[in-house]
């Protein structure tokens, strides 16, 4: 069972649809105790970093997320959900994240670049990983974002995309993964990634 954390940030129906479509059992949960016993945890998120982090705290999810991650439950952050995994973000000031991965969230800085990045971009795998098994190198995924991760440990970047500069599109540290794109909107490659996640065994 994949548990999708609903903390009032965006519409989760399409992530659920992408799991349902593949027969992957899942449940949207709103209360922290519902995370206990999850086989996999998915943290979605759209919009700005600070309100998302505030909502996560308000939903009293922060502590239980840490407990589950420490217990080895495979954890996947999607879009702003990836961003929340890091130490801090510079979006609208300076705001603390979960700190499950080392690094910061910074704005795209390329010259003459349209920000947000909206559309399909290619991701270059940096190594093998169960999350990306069977997905061709340089596959396209659908992105919508203005800020991007800057990892402190280069080995945490599992997939790299380029938009004016190279940035980590897929990250992993231990049993915590994050994807900056929307797998639920990335056609076959995205569906496969979600299926792979569902197949990852707890650490």
């Amino acid at each position: 069972m994949i548990v999708i954390i609903d903390y009032n940030v965006g519409n989760l129906a399409n992530l659920k649809n992408a799991l349902d479509y593949q027969g992957l059992s899942n449940r949207i949960v709103t209360r922290p105790e519902e995370l206990n016993g999850a086989d996999h945890i998915l943290l979605p998120g759209v919009g700005a970093f600070r309100p998302a982090m505030d909502q996560l705290r308000e939903a009293e999810m922060e502590a239980v997320v840490r407990e589950q991650v420490a217990a080895g439950v495979p954890f996947l952050g999607v879009c702003v959900g990836l961003q929340l995994l890091f130490d801090e973000s510079e979006e609208d000031g300076r705001h603390q994240g979960l700190g499950l991965l080392s690094g910061r969230i910074v704005r795209f800085a390329g010259e003459g670049l349209k920000v947000p990045q909206i559309g399909w971009n290619q991701v270059a795998w940096q190594r093998e990983d169960p999350l990306i098994e069977g997905i061709a190198d340089h596959s396209y995924f659908y992105f919508v974002h203005s800020y991007r991760a800057a990892v402190a440990n280069p080995q945490d970047a599992l997939g790299i995309a380029e938009y004016g500069e190279d940035f980590p599109a897929v990250v992993r540290h231990g049993n915590v993964w994050g994807v900056q794109f929307h797998p639920e909107k990335s056609q076959d490659a995205g569906l496969r990634l979600l299926k792979n996640f569902a197949g990852i065994r707890p650490a």
Partner: peptide, 8 residues
């Protein structure tokens, strides 16, 4: 559409 279409 949302149940079967996994592009925006």
């Amino acid at each position: 559409l949302a149940r079967v279409l996994f592009i925006p």
